[in-house]
Amino acid sequence: MTTILIVEDEQQIARVLQLELSFEGYETIVTHTGTDGLLAFHDQPVDLILLDVMLPGMNGLDVLKRIRKHNETIPIILLTAKSEIQDKVNGLDYGANDYVTKPFEFEELLARIRVALRFTTKAAPKQEQALEFEDITLNEQTREVWRAGHLVELTVREFDLLAHFMKHPRLVQSREQILNAVWSYDYFGDTNVVDVYIRYLRQKLDQPFQLPSLLYTVRGVGYVLKEAAHEA
């Protein structure tokens, strides 16, 4: 089912959008600030984003720019006020697919959503991009991960972290390097978040199958993906 992320600070508008889109058969995720919208985008898979421009804290255009650094293809439709002409121009320049002016007719919004999704589907590359290391296979196109023939369910952030390691095998990286590469936006927090997600990956990749971990801790430095150690 298609999932739409709604980033709208006016809760009444957000609730109406959620109800109407759910009625049309879409899954929805609702956030009310730019920061929460960005976190939701990174933490769970979505197919399209409805993004209000005027948001508290981090505004919609900043959110748009940060998402485009990470993902160039996900369709993003801006929700703008009638007077925000420059914001509309800037939004399209920054990579928005379309915009809808408030107040808008829901049928028009639906039509724009269908067009954006249809265009993205047609433009999607057909080739599959698979990364392999030891008994782990990661497919960037389907976003599937397999360990020793077992399908592993990962969140968006867990997938991106594993993909980063698989693109840089045997390279020891500090927490700061990992944070900068995977959490590509300005993350307001400490590097302990890396430790947390490494633990999540180990729990999902190793423990269920009683397999040795391929993600090693390098004390005083960070982490590395390398071949499992075999006892003599």
Rank of each mutant, 00 (worst) to 15 (best):
Q12P: 11
L179V: 11
S22I: 04
A181H: 15
L205V: 03
G222K: 01
G220H: 10
K226V: 03
Q86P: 13
N97K: 13
A40V: 06
T155L: 09
E231G: 15
A96I: 06
Y99V: 01
K126G: 11
Q173K: 10
L214E: 06
E128A: 14
L5S: 02
S174N: 05
K204T: 06
L215Q: 03
G189L: 09
T35G: 05
H150S: 09
E27G: 10
F133I: 06
E231K: 07
A232F: 14
L61F: 07
L64K: 01
L131T: 03
V7R: 03
Q210L: 09
E105S: 14
A130E: 12
D98L: 10
F209K: 01
Y197G: 02
T155K: 12
L61S: 00
V53I: 08
Q177L: 11
V115T: 13
Y187M: 13
L21V: 01
G57S: 02
I49K: 00
E128L: 10
Y94C: 04
Y216F: 10
N97F: 12
N71W: 05
A14K: 00
Y94E: 07
R66A: 04
L64M: 03
G220S: 04
H230Q: 11
I6N: 03
T120R: 13
F209D: 05
M1W: 13
I198K: 02
V89P: 11
F209T: 08
Q141H: 13
Y197N: 11
G34L: 06
L225P: 00
A81L: 15
A229Q: 14
I178E: 04
L38E: 07
I76L: 05
V218T: 11
D93F: 08
W146F: 15
T80R: 05
E8L: 02
L109I: 03
P212L: 10
A96R: 02
M54Y: 08
R143L: 09
V221N: 05
L109R: 01
Y187H: 07
R202M: 13
L5T: 00
I74K: 02
F106C: 07
F23G: 12
H168E: 09
L64Q: 02
Q12G: 15
L48G: 01
K204G: 03
R157G: 01
V221H: 09
M166Q: 15
R143V: 08
V89A: 09
I113R: 00
M54S: 06
K69R: 12
K122S: 08
V221K: 15
T155I: 14
T31C: 11
S174T: 15
L61I: 15
T33H: 03
V53A: 05
E105R: 01
Q129R: 08
P103D: 07
V7N: 05
L179T: 05
V115D: 03
E27L: 02
A232P: 08
T217F: 03
Q18T: 02
S22K: 08
V196T: 13
I178Q: 04
Y216Q: 14
N90Q: 15
D87M: 09
Q203F: 12
I67N: 01
I76N: 01
L64R: 03
D93P: 12
Q44N: 07
R68A: 07
H70Y: 15
T35W: 07
I4M: 07
Q18H: 12
R112H: 01
L110Y: 05
K82N: 14
E140C: 12
Q127C: 05
K122A: 04
A130N: 15
L117S: 06
A14S: 07
